[in-house]
């Protein structure tokens, strides 16, 4: 019999070793699994998903932005030095391009500082607060979105159930997608202003008008998405029209509804911003853009742009959250 190694000496027989190993194999598996899943920080692992590449892209974009700042703001900076009869080094020039009050393109940190000043440091009710202007735009966006969405849904229900509406109205709704509807915004604002409607309502009418087309079109698609077999089944149950609607059509239309809601909340915001232009810079993100463009306040324009983007991203992801909750409650995995 060959000499046993120290490891095997603790077992009396080979059979005992096998039993013990057999009994503990799941523990061992566990151990191997655990070790293999320990986070391994390597470049490849970081760049495997999309979070890593996106971060790299954002960093690259910011670097490009800074380079653009240096090159685009340089002429004015040199001019400034010359006017002051001042000697300047390259480093001073680069520093100067990032500290101008009205730069051709502001540096990212200037925009951040402006955002900090107008969001955190100002009172929310102040006219200089970006939160105040965002809230003005947000209120008309939401009002327009809600009314436009409801209108679109009702119209879609009508189109699905009334054949002559389908034949006569639907082609016009589809055709109106191809025309630049936003062009009528100034007229709507001014005309409604002439009959005494000002402020929130006219702006939200434009948002509503923009919102209801995508919702109506996708809801018509969605309400018709149940396949003939399912409709036949409802028929064999002798379901009434309203039962078919609430138990089959509405459920099948929900995915279409949420997709269109995401589109329409984004354009609702665009509508609200554009609607704020013709009234001439009173309140709202659109007026911040316009005022910034009148007075050459580029940092203010960029800050308003960032605020609008945050608003849009927030609204769209909010609808995404609602969508996920609704689908979870409906039994999706």
């Amino acid at each position: 019999m060959p000499e046993k190694s120290p490891f095997f000496r603790q077992f009396r027989t080979a059979r005992e070793f096998v039993t013990i190993v057999h009994d503990n194999v799941h523990v061992m598996n566990q151990i191997t699994i655990n070790t293999s899943y320990t986070p391994l920080v390597s470049w490849q692992r970081l760049m495997a998903g999309s979070a890593g590449p996106v971060t790299v892209m954002v960093i690259i974009l910011i670097v490009i932005w800074y380079i653009a700042v240096i090159f685009m703001n340089t002429p004015w900076q040199i001019d400034k030095f010359k006017r002051a009869h001042q000697q300047w080094t390259t480093w001073e020039l680069v520093q100067g391009t990032m500290q101008q009050r009205r730069p051709v393109i502001p540096a990212p940190h200037q925009v951040l500082v402006e955002l900090y000043k107008t969001v955190v440091q100002k009172n929310v009710t102040s006219r200089r607060s970006l939160v105040y202007h965002s809230a003005v735009t947000l209120s008309s966006t939401l009002l327009g979105f809600l009314t436009g969405g409801l209108l679109g849904i009702f119209l879609a229900v009508g189109i699905v159930h009334v054949k002559s509406l389908d034949k006569s109205l639907m082609p016009w709704i589809i055709a109106s997608q191809t025309i630049p509807i936003l062009a009528i915004a100034p007229m709507v604002i001014v005309v409604l202003g002439a009959i005494g409607l000002k402020g929130l309502i006219p702006k939200s009418i434009i948002s509503m008008y923009l919102c209801f087309f995508p919702v109506a079109i996708s809801m018509v698609k969605g309400l018709r998405s149940p396949d003939p077999l399912q409709l036949d089944l409802m028929r064999t149950f002798s379901a009434s029209k309203s039962q078919v609607f609430f138990k089959l059509r509405w459920q099948s239309a929900l995915p279409y509804l949420f997709t269109s809601l995401k589109v329409s909340v984004a354009i609702s915001l665009v509508g609200a911003i554009v609607a704020e232009l013709p009234t001439g810079a009173q309140a709202g993100l659109g007026s911040r853009l316009l005022a910034g463009s009148y007075y050459g306040q580029t940092v203010q324009i960029w800050a308003a742009l960032v605020a609008a983007s945050v608003l849009a991203a927030g609204l769209v992801s909010l609808i995404g959250v609602v969508e996920r909750v609704v689908f979870k409650r409906m039994g999706a995995h």
């Binding site: 760049m47 998903g49 999309s50 590449p53 996106v54 790299v56 892209m57 954002v58 393109i105 995401k262 984004a266 915001l269 665009v270 911003i273 554009v274 993100l285 853009l289 316009l290 910034g292 463009s293 580029t298 324009i301 960029w302 308003a304 742009l305 609008a308 983007s309 849009a312 991203a313 769209v316």
Partner: peptide, 24 residues
């Protein structure tokens, strides 16, 4: 790499009110 980095950004940007860059 470019695809995985750019596509999520593109999706985000297409939801933003790009029209706001007009004054710039």
């Amino acid at each position: 790499f470019l695809r995985r980095g750019l596509l999520p950004l593109g999706n985000l940007v297409s939801a933003l009110p790009i029209i706001g860059v007009a004054p710039i």
